[in-house]
């Protein structure tokens, strides 16, 4: 086993997902199958190979730091599930 039920539960917590018992079994099996398949990468010696995170030789792209027009507040809030006084409203964080 590459990953056990407890580790799957830990990963779900990190990812802010709620997973019930039945789902947990399925995910554990499926993630194991995928990770086992990924094991074939270990056949390759990559000790001296640099990683490729990005295929094009583009590094930092800069622009002048100048004020530009932005969305009006009501448009920015138009999709909010809940808002109040021009702000996003969320359930209480501090008791």
């Amino acid at each position: 086993m590459k990953i056990n039920r407890e580790e799957v539960a830990h990963v779900a917590r990190l990812a802010r997902l709620e997973v019930d018992g039945v789902e947990m079994d399925a995910y554990t099996d499926q993630l194991n199958a995928i990770l086992q398949y990924a094991d074939k990468l270990n056949r390759l010696d990559t000790e001296k190979i640099p990683p490729t995170a990005h295929v094009l030789p583009i590094n930092n792209v800069f622009r002048q730091d100048e004020a530009r027009p932005c969305l009006p507040r009501e448009e920015a809030l138009a999709n909010a599930p809940d808002d109040e006084e021009g702000m996003f409203r969320v359930p209480r964080v501090i008791e």
Binding site: N79, P81, D82, P91, V93
Partner: peptide, 19 residues
């Protein structure tokens, strides 16, 4: 995360709302 747009599930606290 249910804060700025899209679906939000009802919950009593922020963490449960995310989950």
């Amino acid at each position: 995360d249910g804060v700025q747009y899209g679906f939000r599930a009802e919950a009593d606290n922020l963490l449960d709302m995310y989950k």
